[in-house]
Nucleic acid binder design. Sequence first.
RNA 1: GCCCGGGUGGUGUAGUGGCCCAUCAUACGACCCUGUCACGGUCGUGACGCGGGUUCAAAUCCCGCCUCGGGCGCCA
Length: 383
Amino acid sequence: MDDDLVETGLGVHRESVITVEGSVEEESRAPTGVEILPETVDVLAEADPELPLDPSGKVDAELPTRLDNRSLDLRKAEVKAVFEIRAEMLRAVREQFRALGCTEINTPKIVATGTEGGTELFPITYFGREAFMNQSPQLFKQLMVGSGLERVFEIGPIFRAEEHNTPRHLNEATSIDFESAFFDESDAMDACESVVIAAYEGVAEHCQNELETLGLAEEFAVPDEGFPRIPYEEAIEQINATGELDEQLVWGDDLPTEGERALGEEIGEHYFITEWPSEIKPFYIKDLDEDETLSTGFDLMHPRMELVSGGQREHRHSHLIEGFEQQGLEPEAFEYYTKMFKYGMPPHAGWGLGGERLVMTMLGLDNIREAVIFPRDRQRLSP
RNA sequence: GCCCGGGUGGUGUAGUGGCCCAUCAUACGACCCUGUCACGGUCGUGACGCGGGUUCAAAUCCCGCCUCGGGCGCCA
């Protein structure tokens, strides 16, 4: 072999980008059974000898180090596999939405008012006017069911300014939203279940290599149809019965994180919690006709955490206005929304699914930041 | 927002007042060995977040700041 080639080959630092031309020779001692006998070696992009993390995986790096150097991090097969699976999940979900007869829409992310009050919004300046980053496509997708589109979905970013610091929250997340005219909450849950199962099926079908890389090939299972639907009242009774909580829950309490986990452990699969107290669900969720202290709101839970929140919507204009007032919101600020309920808004239902949470629970990731290439959290604004 | 915990070579770590001009692994550099392939060997380079304080003595204790992680509330 040419001395210059040897020189180049020995001088190139790991993770540099090179081109090698030569003949492929069988070689039983090589791990792949073949070796390339080079005729030329060109260094296209030299890498610094000291790397900020080790892509070979011999030495671990902590998550912040990895996120600061994401390109290098993504050279690791296990990290890459997560995002290949995420991409497949999104593809499968889109396909299922189309099978359900949905039209994909995109709604504004810069808005004049919040969606539902409660969660914190990021303020921005919009040509000198106060504006916000949208926390949810909720109101916009509802307006679509009264349009000619009637059944829609959107996959897009949502922004929440909550200063939480947990392994399951992001300040910029991917929301998978669904809304359909002439659906009640039960129809919406059916659709929700089918979309979650489709995501798992897509991954099972197209990502076997990635699952193997992650060491999940054996255990990965598509969830069975017919997720249990547990009324809120039963859910709190079951949680109380586990004895995991220091204080017993009473009707009207939201489920604390610890309670969710205790219940999840008990049930051991995806499940819906239905018939939430009206008072802890937002104004746009419809109450049950037979008992207005209960709402049509539901949550889809994975044993580890909440994945989806949904329900049948309040489509009656006068009830909607009342709801705004009860939550201390000014209906006037939302007139762009409420006025469309005066011109024939069909009964409808829908839900929003946390895309990163779906990936995280599907792959058993410890931290939701592992499911986003460039996550935005309380501390992190770049890269 | 409230409450915990942490910041030591490029990376990941050991080190709870003197044994530390700081351990180990990996990386990096030099040499040697070698049909190696997570090669092996010898030698070398390289670090206590910042500022103040306590003490004869501080990586170690105290205070402030910066920064990161976690728990809860809330949520997807």
